[in-house]
Structure formats: C-alpha cells, structure tokens
Amino acid sequence: MYEMYQNVDFTLADLDLLWRGLQWTLLVWSASMVLGIGLGFVLGLVAHARVPVLSQLVTVFVETFRNSPLLVQLFLVFYGLPLVTPFSPGPAEAAIFTVAINTAAFTVVNLVAALDALPRGQWQAAGAFGLSYGQTMRYIVLPQAIRTALPPTMNLAVSQLQTTSLVSIIGVADLTRVGTMLYTRTLKPFLIWPAIGLIYFILAKILSVLAARVERRLQTKNSWFQAAA
C-alpha cells in the first residue's frame, strides 16, 4: 500500500530537475550579487560622503539588514510587500531582491571601512593640487579603497551562495528545493542531501579558488599596497 505512492527510483528526469535547480541557484545568486554589490557600492559612497539625511538612512538600512535573519527578510518581502505596496513579487523576484539588499548592506560596510582606512595624507595630496572631490574619489581614493574592499566582498559573495538555499522556502525551484522534492518522493535523505550538499560544495570551492586567485594577483601585482603611505 505504502509502496504504491512511492517512486523510490531515480530517473534521468531527476538529473534534469537537478540541472534546473542548479540554474535557479546560480541565477538567484549571480543576479543578487550584481545588484547587491552595485547597490552597496553606491550606498557606501553616500554613507562615506556624509550626505545629510541620506547617509543616516543608509546607516539605518545597513543596520537593519545586517542584524536580522535573511529568512525573516525573505518572508517580509515575499508575504509582506504585497500587503503594503502595489508590488507583489513572485518567488524569484522576491528572492533576488532580498538577497541583493542583504548583500548590499554588507558591501556598504566593506567599502566604508576601506574608504576610512585610507590615510588622510592621500586626501591632502589630492586637495593640495586642486583635485575636486569627484576627481579625488575617482583617481586617488576609489582605486585604492576598492582593492582593500575586494577581498572581503568576494568572501561575502562566496558565502552568499550557500545562503541562497533559504530562498527554497518561499518556493524558488533552486537546488535545495529540488532536493526537497526528490526527498519527499523517494524518502532517501542520506542519498539526496549529501548529493545536494556536494553540488554546493563544488560551486563554493570553485568560487573561493577564483577569489583567492584574484586576491593573490592584487597582492603580487601591487606589492606597493602594504607600503601605502
């Protein structure tokens, strides 16, 4: 009787399901990283420039999203937004939006820390020769600050890949969601979850190896950096 509702065997169609899950995971991750790091960059500049009102708003934004669970944020966006705004995002939109703003909050912290770490002498050396604020930012400050902010931001991006598994809860058909589907059908947790975990592991490993390579190149190519006056 029990057996009748079960399809305990895996088929080729399951592989296809996994493949599509992987694509969703990568889509949610890459879209939210691009949007989130981009947004975080802009907000970081606003925060650092101490634009009245705006930079205080950025601080509130950053503190809110850094200090609350992503899952809560997801629920708020997915279930809450349609009630108070004209927007009712689908699972994928809500997922990308939420992971993006969460990532933005952490990116702001990385960028502002890097900007603040720049010696004051750099600002003076730019100002003394008449460079404007924008020129100083563009030619002197940001090239150095981005190099400082890049490693922690790459680490953030790598760890956000695992975090995207949470979006399965609001119904995005990502890897984890596919895992749930296969598990409820076959009831073979010790086969499915290690397999899903392995896929995440491989993805994360690839990304962190790439990140480490970029970091190494930044260091060797710019041996000057530690000696920044």
Partner: peptide, 27 residues
Amino acid sequence: TSMVFQHFNLYPHLTALQNITLAPIKV
C-alpha cells in the same frame, strides 16, 4: 601654490610618472 609633504603622500597605486602627471592633466 604647490605642496611637498613631510610624509611624501605619493599616490601608491600610481607610478612615479603618473603621480606627477595626474594633477596637471586633470586640474
């Protein structure tokens, strides 16, 4: 007026030549 600083304050990410040419080109 131009300033030479006690601690040089050169731009570490630029070459010596770029350090010199930046302000004349941009300013």
